[in-house]
Structure formats: structure tokens, C-alpha cells
């Protein structure tokens, strides 16, 4: 490929090459590896090995290009927005893949480029294999510290694309899940009394709101990389938004994200006490057992609603998929956990 040559074909690799040439202020950019990474039904991640000649980025780099998958549906955040969230998280000291360049030239789907971070994300491996996580207390604390740093980010004008922070996030979520269930009910008249019980319990026990901060909203095992036993980077920021910090704590501690080790409360990889101690040590608010229990219930309700929505995409015929169909069969386990938590058994 000739340096500086502007290719007019909508070939993503050529487009990326031309973009990087400009973005790096280089005399030439060679993309030596271009491999689609596994996973990602909504976003597509491509591993790039890039050689840059001259300019501030001269040298060899291992990067990831993140863009919308061709089959993308109902994307919650655009790639340029996700790039800005990643920037804000990195600036707050959260471990993330360093965001480098964002492209929204309109000549194809938006994308951004970030550092490629080595590590393992797979939840079943991290929960099972002690060689990957030799010191579980230390990883749990790191996850807590890292989350506390994220929660220091508060609503600011340069992040107004995230919308206004809800005045009472718990009640706003309850109202939103009820609307979601009504929409899910409408095609066939189904109803979910156990989920309604969980929502009624949450409405009755709603805590007073805390000042809103930046939430990841999918901060759990499976969405971070562990390298040499340490937290290397938090991934998948497309659900980030303003809310109650305890929502992220409840999500990480929810039984539904413990993979092979339901006995390890912090994402199947460690103890809740270590996770919460790390959170408090880095300036996060101390939380009571009642608070974490409340937000664990909310976590299971949220995942149940999302699972039903995913299954509905299959059932309605809009996206026939075995994986989406099977997601509905996660719901009874979530219902079981909601009953245990609200009765004080779990």
C-alpha cells in the first residue's frame, strides 16, 4: 500500500490506513495485522498491528479498532461517545485501554482506535483457574479501587451527550423496568409475577438517592482483562451513564455474574469484603449489607428485563438466533435469586 494514497473504495482496512496516516501525522502507516477479535454481537473489535513512520507515533503499535458490527441493533452509545467516556475514565485514573483516535468522517461506520491490552477476560476461566488469579483478594481490591476512581467523575457539560442525571436513580430504574415489562407483555399477554414482586420490594425499600456519578453499567467479570494476576483494563463502556454508584457495586456482586464460583460474591473471582474494602480505600463510599443487597436485587431485575428483551428479538422474528432464544431460560434463575434476596436467604 502506498503511503498517503487516498483510496476511494469503502474498504474498512484502507479507510483505517488513510485515517491513521493523518491522525498520526506520519509519512507512512502500514497495517501489518487486521484480525477480527471473537465476541461482540453489537460492536466489532479488530486487532491491528501498525507500523508508523515519523511523527509523534513513530514506531510499531498493537492497537484495537472498535466499530459497529454489520448486524448492530439498538446501539446505546455511538463510537465517538464511547471514545469520550473512555477518555474521561482514563483521565480519572481508571484502568482502560488508552483511547487514541476517533473517526467520524461519515465515509463508513464510525470507529475509534485504542491500545491493545494483553490479558484474559473469560469469566469461566478467571473464576476457575487460580493460575490466572493467584491472589484473589488483591484482584478484588483492585476492582474496587478502580471503580471508586470512576465514581469520582461527576456530571459535566462536556459529557452532556449522556443526558441529565436522574434525580432518584432507583425509582427511575423501577419505573423504566416496569415500562419495559409492559412492552414485553403486549405481544402475547405474558406476565412475570416474580419480577413484579422484586420491583414492588425495590419500590418499598428504595434508598434515598446519592449524588449522581459516572457508572460503567456493565462492570463485571467478563468485561475486564486480567494480566499476570492483575487488573489490566476495563472494557465495554457502551452502557455508561449517570446514576447511583451503588448500582455498579450491586452489578459486580450479583450472583448472576459469578460464573463457575457462585460462592465468591465479587464476580466469582474474590470476596465482597475485599472488593468493598478496595472501593472504600480509594475514596468510594462505605456501603452497608442492606445497600448491597438492595442493588443486587436491582441487578437481577435489570438482567432479567434485558434477557427477556433479547429473547423477544428472537421470538418476534426480528433477529432469529439460538443464543437469544436461550437467554430467556436464564430468567428463572434470576427470579429464584430475587426471591432469596428479598426474603433474606441469599
Amino acid at each position: 500500500m502506498i503511503a498517503g494514497d487516498r483510496i476511494s473504495l469503502p474498504d474498512p482496512r484502507a479507510r483505517a490506513q488513510a485515517f491513521l496516516l493523518k491522525a498520526c501525522g506520519a509519512s507512512s502507516v502500514a497495517i501489518e495485522r487486521w484480525d477480527r477479535l471473537p465476541g461482540g454481537a453489537i460492536q466489532e473489535n479488530i486487532a491491528l498491528d501498525v507500523r508508523v513512520e515519523s511523527g509523534a507515533f513513530a514506531g510499531r503499535h498493537e492497537w484495537v479498532l472498535r466499530t459497529d458490527a454489520p448486524s448492530a441493533v439498538a446501539v446505546s452509545r455511538s463510537r465517538p461517545e464511547e471514545f469520550r467516556i473512555l477518555r474521561a475514565a482514563a483521565d480519572a485514573g481508571v484502568r482502560v485501554p488508552e483511547p487514541l483516535f476517533v473517526c467520524d468522517d461519515g465515509e463508513g461506520p464510525d470507529f475509534f482506535v485504542m491500545q491493545r491490552v494483553p490479558g484474559v477476560a473469560a469469566g469461566h476461566r478467571l473464576s476457575k483457574d487460580d493460575r490466572l488469579v493467584p491472589d484473589r483478594g488483591s484482584l478484588a481490591r483492585e476492582l474496587g479501587e478502580n471503580l471508586a476512581r470512576l465514581h469520582r467523575v461527576t456530571p459535566a457539560p462536556d459529557m452532556d451527550f449522556l443526558g441529565e442525571a436522574p434525580a432518584d436513580p432507583a425509582r427511575a430504574s423501577i419505573a423504566s423496568y416496569r415500562r419495559d415489562l409492559d412492552v414485553l407483555s403486549s405481544p402475547r399477554g405474558e406476565a412475570w409475577p416474580a419480577l413484579e414482586w422484586g420491583l414492588a420490594w425495590c419500590a418499598r425499600n428504595a434508598p434515598g438517592p446519592l449524588p449522581a456519578c459516572l457508572l460503567h453499567r456493565d462492570y463485571r467479570t467478563g468485561n475486564y482483562l486480567v494480566h499476570e494476576g492483575r487488573l489490566a483494563a476495563v472494557l465495554d463502556w457502551e452502557f455508561a451513564g449517570w446514576g447511583d454508584p451503588r448500582e455498579d457495586l450491586g452489578w459486580m456482586l450479583a450472583r448472576c455474574w459469578r460464573f463457575a464460583r457462585p460462592d465468591r460474591e465479587a464476580g466469582g473471582i474474590g470476596d465482597a469484603a475485599d472488593f468493598l474494602a478496595g472501593y472504600a480505600a480509594a475514596g468510594g463510599r462505605a456501603t452497608t449489607r442492606e445497600e448491597t443487597r438492595y442493588w443486587q436485587v436491582m441487578a437481577h431485575l435489570r438482567w432479567a428485563v434485558i434477557a427477556l428483551q433479547q429473547a423477544e428479538r428472537h421470538r418476534s422474528g426480528s433477529q432469529r438466533s439460538l443464543e437469544l432464544a436461550l437467554t430467556a431460560h436464564i430468567v428463572p434463575d434470576l427470579e429464584h435469586e430475587i426471591l432469596d434476596l428479598t426474603e433474606g436467604i441469599a
Binding site: H329, I330, V331, P332, H336
Partner: peptide
């Protein structure tokens, strides 16, 4: 709650 327990148990016995 007794009803929800029984129903959820039956649902889970099929799903998982």
C-alpha cells in the same frame, strides 16, 4: 411468596 417459590422452582426445573 409460597406460590412464587413453587412456580419458579418448576420453571427452573425445565430451564436449568
Amino acid at each position: 411468596l409460597a406460590h412464587l417459590r413453587e412456580t419458579t422452582r418448576a420453571r427452573l426445573a425445565v430451564s436449568n
